[in-house]
Write a protein that binds this DNA or RNA. Structure first.
Lengths: 199, 199, 199, 199
DNA sequence: AATGAATGAGCATTCATTCAT
DNA sequence: TATGAATGAATGCTCATTCAT
């Protein structure tokens, strides 16, 4: 992954280091070394350590949002859209372990770490799920009794926990495809209208 | 909550402090003050700061396991069992915010914090879900294609993310009962055999 | 000078180190080493580096005030009182070089270093001079046209600059007694020949 | 104040910045910004930060010396000469606050800051006072018992401390003229009533 | 068992200085 | 000459842990 400029280079380095050591155990000098810049250089691009973490969230999740939105733009069926979201999320998490770790672990602490920080990008990402559900409800494909605001969390939580297996390195393993099929099997067939066929 | 002895008193104090500040921002002196003991006293009961966190996990989740197992022991229907697990988990998380925070946030970091620590108690807790699913499959109530090892994670992840709303304090709110109904609606009706009736 | 307790021990060590290196070049570890305590110990007694400097001022000048007030209490003649103040100030500054340096150099910067810090003790010390002048004016020994608020500064400034020779280590040297006589001669009688008219 | 060249521009900028923040809190980038040049440009004209401070002393005090020497050249009476020196010093210090701060505060630290630096210009300035006193003694206007080397310090110290009121911004205020009159009154004639005996 | 004063290792951040352009 | 991005050494302060009492 070639870094276009130093800002990006540092973001990628930080993602890697935060993933490996966690935010608190990560040293600025670790990030600097990983990015092959001097410690002080980091402060030309970021205000402080927290700022680096926030930037990692914003930029990495921002890219994820762009990617999945692009994929979704070619599809119209809410069932297929859920499938696309699922497969994309799981495969990115399996491939990009560093990003996965940061989202699964560091993102969770962020509210506690940084006063008044709202993970807007993260909310935006999860809201893609609820928007798909709402679309499906408008077209009578998804049951009207499902509350999108709750279902989006249930669904994201399921994906998140499922994909943790790959980062934590638990023995029990499964492929992205197996996980996708299971998730869809459980979730889709659950929220479908009784007469809407499962995929 | 009256503490039987100093060990328990410290565990409860630590749960509260870790929940409020997070493991890294929590100071031993904070825990000592909360437990109304001297800083040094903590080291008579625990080896180090990590040891306190591990003990919090083991004891608090241990109690949770006891509680839910007791509730489940009076029930035989796998559908009801899933409902009991769900309602219990969500209501404990809503009531005991400190425990909720520690499970949702600190537990996730634990592997990174403490080399070679396996959250055995946590695994035991999540495995209750897969054992219920297996039971349902044996009785042909849950579909045989569902993989319990994946489904347990999907289900726990859903519960976990759903209940995070209460600790993070997001505006969108719902009651334990609403959340329970939605979770069951989505999850149960999804994993049931085609001819097994939803609750 | 035996230190009664750690607080005093650190104050004395800091006076010495600030005198030798100046506030900014003084390292906390220098003070700690000089006081024979650990770096962290200093923070059990002081809030921060500035706080140490302020404490040095307050305590060292406080002691100086006590000392000179005690000496003055036995004297009633405003001429003798000025003499006592002068001789005491000059001899303390010549003997206690560290204190002299801190007063002459670091005290001057203090307003710039520490926002909203008023050297109350220092003002109190200089005000002893104006109170002697006022006493002399009441008794018609000192001229009524002299403004005590200006004269106190002129007098203290003269003493201060005179005594700097000893700390800076300028070649031109004179004894405390010589300096005292000259100061009194100039300040009390002026530098004019008896029959030369003032301007 | 139009700067003839960059060297002078930087000197003036540095005087201002050192006055405002003090030498240690002043950053090279502050001076560069004030002088409207790049940080690196400063190093084309000065060796290091200390060098800038020394240059400030030399050039600003050098100008002060030129100015007062020119004023004194038209006067022959040692009493008038002391008056001219006093009024000039006080009025420059009241007008040029930046220079005043640098002389009153930063100059004092200079020996500690810069190894082996002798403020030659400063000595030259203060020696003007002793040369006036010597002149007065030759003409039997000033008493022969006065030691010019001590009196020059006493006199400069008085002026310095008197003028500090204006830079520090103490409530008690007086005009240049009031201060000049008081200084001359005290120094030339002493503070005693005409018929009160000196000690 | 209990205390809490003392320790000292460890790190985010700053900023004078350099140097490629 | 002039620039300003990059460097990396340097340090105030925190806090987990120890240990004399």
């Amino acid at each position: 992954m070639k870094a276009a400029n130093k800002h990006t280079k540092i973001i990628h380095a930080a993602t890697k280091v935060f993933a490996k050591k966690g935010f608190f155990n990560a040293r600025i000098s670790d990030i600097a070394k990983e990015a092959k810049v001097a410690d002080g250089t980091i402060y030309l691009y970021f205000n402080n350590k927290f700022d680096i973490l926030i930037s990692v969230f914003e930029e990495e999740i921002g890219a994820l949002i762009e990617q999945v939105k692009k994929l979704l733009s070619t599809e119209d069926d809410p069932r297929k859209m859920i499938e696309i979201f699922t497969r994309n999320h799981l495969s990115v998490m399996k491939k990009n372990k560093h990003l996965a770790e940061v989202i699964q672990i560091e993102l969770r602490q962020s509210a506690k770490l940084i006063k008044d920080y709202r993970n807007n990008k993260f909310s935006e990402y999860v809201d893609i799920i609820s928007s798909i559900i709402k679309l499906g409800q408008e077209r009578s494909i998804y049951r009207a009794t499902i509350r999108p605001g709750i279902a989006k969390r249930a669904f994201f939580g399921a994906l998140d926990e499922i994909s943790r297996v790959w980062t934590v390195g638990i023995a029990t393993d499964y492929t992205v495809e197996e996980a996708t099929q299971q998730i869809l099997d459980i979730f889709l067939c659950g929220i479908l209208e009784p007469d809407a066929p499962c995929l």
